[in-house]
Simulated assay, not measured.
Amino acid sequence: MHDSLNDEELLRYSRQILLSQIDIDGQLRLKNSRALIVGLGGLGSPVALYLAAAGVGELHLADFDTVDLTNLQRQIAHDTASIGQSKVDSMRARLLAINPHLALQAHRTALDVDSMAAAVAAVDLVLDCSDNFGTREAVNAACVAAGKPLVSGAAIRLEGQLSVFDPRQPTSPCYHCLYGHGSEAELTCSEAGVVGPLVGLVGSLQALEALKLLAGFGEPLVGRLLLIDALGSRFRELRVKRDPACAVCGPHP
């Protein structure tokens, strides 16, 4: 645990420290925080870039995929030179170029039940930036079991969603409370398409929610689902309640 910020850190994060809601104490909390980012694509790119720049001390990066030419329209952490490279390695180089003080942990293979549980247990907060329902369900189950807050984002076509699930709060729903068993007709961006700035917007909001939770300021999106209509530039918020019979966070998981 770090108990102070050095002179370079005070300067690097000075614009953040100026905020009374963060100040030096909040910045120190960020320095001592660990976050797991599951998925380093369209959502994971702005999430990782902003958390690294903001001074979150340790980032755990999870993605088994490699950079493809079709990714570059929206996955802004990667570039043409990194095509064919592991997304974890591409992201690692980008983040250290922004902030050499970072500690980084790499997960380059798909996480199974045991490795997911270990990865979640090793951090303070998890950001789900994946693109499929199965991974989201697995991440949620691990977060509920470990009592770790989960910042969940999704974007497809011209629509985005964002919420925070915090099992430390007795009234907080989990991902399964909201989405149940998912949809048999679930589409991915490779099938349905997506506009780049939309995933950038959702990912940036995920990073903001993570900073609020880790530094301890503001009102996180717990019990609320933010819906984004990129076509009409409209935001809508729905209240989400915990399902008392939920198969994941209920009394009989």
Rank of each mutant, 00 (worst) to 15 (best):
L162V: 14
A146K: 04
V199E: 06
G55V: 10
G250S: 13
R242E: 12
D79P: 02
R234W: 09
L30C: 14
G55K: 05
S204Q: 13
L150Q: 03
L213H: 07
G182M: 12
L102R: 01
A77P: 00
V113T: 05
Q27T: 14
P149A: 08
D68C: 11
R236E: 12
L104F: 03
K241I: 11
L19M: 09
S115G: 04
L198W: 12
A119S: 07
G55D: 06
A117M: 07
T171Q: 14
I37L: 03
D7G: 10
E8H: 15
G196S: 08
L205R: 15
R92A: 10
G39N: 01
H101N: 10
C189D: 09
R239F: 10
V195I: 15
T70V: 12
A97K: 04
G39K: 01
L208A: 09
A155T: 02
G41K: 00
S183Q: 08
V88R: 04
P46N: 02
L43P: 01
Q206G: 03
S233G: 06
V139E: 06
Y179P: 13
C174R: 10
A122T: 01
H78S: 04
G160I: 03
A146C: 07
F133P: 07
T80H: 11
A247T: 14
P167Y: 00
I76C: 00
S33P: 04
V113R: 11
A215S: 14
E237D: 11
S115R: 00
H101R: 12
T109V: 14
H181E: 15
L49I: 00
R94I: 00
S82A: 02
P251F: 09
P149N: 09
V222A: 06
A52D: 10
F64R: 10
V199P: 03
V240A: 11
R157M: 13
A210Y: 04
K148M: 09
A215F: 14
V126F: 04
V113M: 12
F235W: 10
V88C: 15
E58K: 15
T66E: 05
L51I: 03
L205S: 13
D89V: 02
S33Y: 09
A106Q: 15
A142S: 10
E209C: 04
M91S: 08
M116D: 02
I24N: 06
L150P: 02
I24W: 11
L10G: 04
E237I: 08
L205M: 15
F165N: 06
S204H: 01
L95F: 11
V113Q: 12
R136F: 06
A155D: 00
G250F: 02
R157C: 13
D114P: 04
L211Y: 13
L5F: 13
K148P: 01
D243I: 03
